[in-house]
């Protein structure tokens, strides 16, 4: 079967895991790994038989066969890459907090964003919690939604650590704009326990209509939707309702493609990005 070619900019942990996910995809074909220096990630891609370059984004702009580009660099680099990719007619899937394009959480708003050229993947915590925030809001009308994401210290890379405010600010905005809460707040905790803990996410919401049955049904439906692209997504604590407060806890176990299973945080944002790319690829393949 024919596939759509994709490139990855940024051969770090996220980029390498994306590469393995693309290798498993029915609709995407790994084309080129793009870096700016020789690195372990570049060597890994080469060893697997893929084209690589250390010339940066410029090296792939002329290659018309590459239709989708995952950008796993940083916010500043993506701000520079985004207009170049757009001009070259390529779909950009932005793994950074640059937010050039709209936030996308596949199970919530991917259908509505079909004409976009640039998709921002929010944050790992956003991919894990916005679906539940949305489900609660649909059933009960959230006035305030607050999430706490706990990730293992080992799975928090230098980028996350140096820019932790970007996590809280971006996730809080996505809880509002995508999750539908009137006001959002996000908290992130790093836990160094050994063996590393799975990523856990708590979603607290203050709602207008605390109807237990409606909320429970809406949340379990949403969990199934997320599971369709993140198999390790689990409902740890089903909705607990106390007055107008709803609390749900979900756990994310990674697929273990390239990163260890405890890195559910990295797995869920990558799985969501692949979901976006596959939808675009499917549509393009159908059109022929």
């Amino acid at each position: 079967m024919e596939k759509v070619k994709a490139a990855i900019i940024g051969p770090g942990n996220i980029g390498s895991d994306l590469m393995y996910k693309i290798m498993r995809s029915r609709y995407l074909e790994m084309s080129c790994m793009v870096g700016i220096v020789e690195s372990e990630g570049i060597r890994r891609a080469k060893k697997l038989g893929f084209e690589t370059t250390t010339e940066g984004v410029e090296a792939i702009l002329e290659k018309d066969e590459i239709q989708i580009v995952f950008d796993a660099t940083g916010a500043k680099a993506h701000a520079f890459h985004a207009p170049l990719l757009r001009k070259a007619g390529k779909i950009a899937i932005d793994m950074t907090p640059a937010a050039v394009g709209p936030y996308v959480v596949p199970c919530v708003n991917l259908e509505r964003l079909s004409d976009e050229m640039n998709f921002n993947m929010v944050t790992c915590g956003g991919q894990a919690t916005v679906p539940i925030a949305y489900a609660i809001n649909q059933a009960a009308d959230s006035q305030y939604t607050e999430i706490i994401s706990c990730i293992s210290s080992k799975s928090a890379g230098p980028g996350t650590r140096a820019n932790i405010d970007e996590f809280t600010e971006t996730t809080a905005r996505a809880l509002e704009t995508v999750g539908g809460a009137d006001k959002g707040k996000a908290i992130i905790i790093l836990n160094p326990a050994e063996p590393p803990l799975m990523m856990t996410n708590t979603i607290h919401s203050l709602v207008k209509n605390p109807d237990r049955e409606k909320i429970t049904a809406s949340v379990s439906q949403m969990v199934e939707k997320v599971q369709s692209y993140v198999p390790g997504y689990k409902l740890r604590t089903p909705p607990i309702i106390k007055g107008s407060q709803v609390t749900v806890i979900v756990e994310v176990e990674g697929a273990g493609d390239f990163l260890p299973k405890y890195s559910g945080n990295l797995d869920i944002i990558n799985a969501a990005a692949i979901e976006v790319a596959e939808k675009i690829a499917r549509e393009r393949l159908l059109k022929g």
Binding site: I148, T237, T247
Partner: peptide, 18 residues
């Protein structure tokens, strides 16, 4: 026992539920 750190008050509900 779970090695919870400062700020993980949300896990109190998780533990109590379990």
């Amino acid at each position: 026992r779970r090695g919870m750190v400062g700020g993980q008050e949300d896990m109190i509900v998780d533990v109590a539920y379990q």
